[in-house]
């Protein structure tokens, strides 16, 4: 990037925010879910989180060294990517899979496209989808409490019974960071309270998904099914932490609403009409790809311009 910065006209608000500070808040907000994951799945989860974060930092540092760029590991974004990636992995994956995932997230999705702020899709989710396609067996091996069962969502899809309380509390099978709705919502509140995110994307995502489920799932006004769908899988993690990623969401509020609705509809289509039970990660990366188009139709009008004059 050149040194030219595009600045709008005055007045400007001066804030003390920096990338590192925002990333620190995101890490803080991710901690409840990460800690719950470690509590829920044991020390193996901690090991995966550590491997993921360390390898993300090393790959970013190596890439900066090889391409002779300014070292960017201190902005903390690699830590966030590593943490998010680990929270999107099932606890039983081997260590090398985590390293491959970190490589794909940092080098291919993030750095090759220009580093932080230039990535076209969420690095952690892009990497998760890469891993799911590459290693379908390892990535869908959810074991919990020595009981190698399906995730609640898969059970729900197959017509089984699920316990919604457990899904909200998080004592269920799933990826490391996605199980506990409570922990994720605490993190989400931290994000909102510290001003990192606002509710435009998250709320429209969750509401449009709920509306889609009510309209098209064929269950009528079944609150049990709806709450299981809302609490299950990566929906909460995606809605609070992944879909709200600054680089890959639209800038304007109007754009963010369109983006949230698109996310909800896509997730609904994948979960209800698709072959697999989960669809959040694909919905988010596909919506990420739509962001440039959404930006195009949601450009705000300049003051004094526009109007439907003929």
């Amino acid at each position: 990037m050149s040194g030219i910065k595009k600045v709008s006209s005055t007045p400007h608000i001066r804030a003390k925010d920096s990338t590192a500070k925002i990333m620190l808040r995101v890490i803080l907000a991710l901690l409840p879910a990460a800690l719950f994951g470690i509590y829920n799945f044991g020390l193996k989860a901690l090991l995966i989180i550590v491997i993921s974060i360390v390898s993300c930092i090393i790959f970013e540092w190596l890439f900066c060294c090889i391409t002779k760029q300014k070292n960017s590991i201190f902005d903390g974004s690699a830590i966030v990517t590593g943490l998010l990636l680990a929270m999107n992995l099932p606890v039983l994956v081997p260590w090398w899979l985590v390293v491959i995932g970190s490589f794909f997230a940092i080098v291919v999705v993030k750095m090759l496209f220009g580093g932080l702020g230039q990535n076209f899709m969420n690095p952690a989710l892009g990497s998760r989808c890469f891993l799911v396609i590459s290693f379908p067996k390892l990535m869908t091996d959810f074991a919990y409490d020595t009981f190698s069962g399906a995730t609640p969502l898969a059970e729900l899809k197959n017509g089984g019974e699920v316990i919604v309380q457990n899904m909200i509390l998080g004592t269920e099978a799933g990826t490391i960071g996605e199980t506990s709705v409570i922990a994720i919502v605490i993190g989400g509140i931290i994000l909102i309270a510290t001003g990192v995110i606002d509710l435009y994307v998250t709320a429209t995502y969750l509401l449009s998904f709920a509306a889609f489920v009510l309209l098209f799932a064929g269950k009528g006004l079944n609150l049990y099914y709806l709450s299981a769908q809302m609490a299950g899988g990566g929906l909460m993690l995606g809605a609070f932490f992944m879909a709200t990623d600054y680089a890959t969401r639209p800038i304007t509020k109007k754009g963010q609403v369109i983006y949230g609705i698109l996310l909800g509809v896509l997730t609904g289509i994948f979960r209800i009409f698709g072959p697999s039970a989960e669809g959040v990660s694909y919905a988010i990366i596909i919506s990420n790809l739509f962001v440039p188009l959404i930006e195009k139709i949601s450009i705000p009008k300049c003051f004094g311009k526009g109007g439907e004059r003929r």
Binding site: I100, F130, I133, S134, F135
Partner: peptide, 15 residues
């Protein structure tokens, strides 16, 4: 060992 199956699918060609 499990191979990285994505490389024999369409995205692998681009990579």
């Amino acid at each position: 060992q499990s191979p990285i199956a994505i490389f024999v699918m369409a995205p692998g060609a681009f990579f």
